[in-house]
């Protein structure tokens, strides 16, 4: 089973990379972009009996640094 994990910076945490992407978009002539936040996408291929609790623990213990990042898990 494929599981998608989206790791994003918490609101209020400065995102220098997002800012740089934003500036680059503007320099390419794209108007109307108010803000850019960059994150990380991780796809796991796991056995069907891996529990939601296990997936949550994987995120808390390694995939995300919960000091600065939030995560969202999507199955299937």
């Amino acid at each position: 089973m494929k599981v998608q994990v989206y790791v994003t910076l918490k609101p209020g945490v400065l995102d220098p990379q997002g800012k740089a992407i934003h500036h680059a978009l503007e320099s390419l002539g794209f108007a109307g972009v108010a803000d850019v936040r960059a994150g990380r996408f991780i796809e796991l291929d796991v056995a069907d009996d891996v529990s939601d609790d296990d997936l949550d623990a994987m995120c808390r213990k390694l995939l995300a640094n919960t000091v600065i990042e939030n995560y969202r898990i999507e199955r299937g």
Binding site: V13, L14, P16, Q17, A20, N65, V67, I68
Partner: peptide, 17 residues
């Protein structure tokens, strides 16, 4: 040490990139 939980906080990409 921050990732291991021995010290609080986190070290992020330099603000100036």
């Amino acid at each position: 040490l921050t990732e291991a939980g021995l010290l609080p906080g986190a070290l992020m990409r330099n603000a100036g990139l």
